[in-house]
């Protein structure tokens, strides 16, 4: 697979954009109150659409089309000129708008504050959810033990 690895700052941006996309919309709304006046200029109104999800034949072969998922996208620009983009799973326009807003603000002087107040709580929520699920699955792992075999007697 050819993955173009972006430079470090882009890698950082990729990480937060992914985190914002995977966030629960209600949780993001709690963490990111509605933007102050004057609000950002909306470059692309939140729009609901789909993305075709691809799989690979035999997990490692050529791609095939598995089916679509719903996605909402939004782009906006802050007064400072920073442009934020979002493509988030589902049909929540507020989710897409807030994700784009945080993406833009993360490119400004408020980055450190947002990292502390928004990204880190989201990361903790997600890590907690994943760990809980993985822990419950792990408890269903089969521990085999060998019975006394006939020839051992």
């Amino acid at each position: 697979m050819t993955v173009s690895v972006p430079p470090p700052d882009l890698q950082d941006r990729r990480t937060w954009m992914g985190l914002l996309a995977r966030a629960r919309p209600e949780r993001l709304a709690e963490l990111v109150p509605d933007e102050p006046d004057p609000g950002p200029v909306i470059l692309r109104q939140p729009e609901i659409g789909t993305v075709m999800v691809q799989g690979r034949i035999g997990a490692a072969g050529s791609p095939f089309n598995l089916g679509e998922m719903t996605v909402t996208r939004c782009s906006l620009r802050l007064e400072s000129g920073a442009v934020g983009h979002a493509h988030v799973q589902g049909r929540s326009k507020d989710h897409a708008r807030r994700a784009a807003l945080v993406d833009a603000l993360m490119q400004t002087g408020r980055a450190a504050q947002l990292r502390r107040d928004v990204l880190e709580p989201l990361l903790r929520d997600e890590a907690g959810r994943r760990l809980a699920r993985a822990g419950k699955a792990a408890a269903t792992k089969v521990e085999f033990f060998t019975l006394v075999r006939g020839e051992d007697r």
């Binding site: 659409g49 789909t50 075709m52 691809q54």
Partner: peptide
């Protein structure tokens, strides 16, 4: 449709 994903 906005596009296609990378293969999962």
């Amino acid at each position: 449709r906005f596009g296609s994903s990378r293969p999962v």
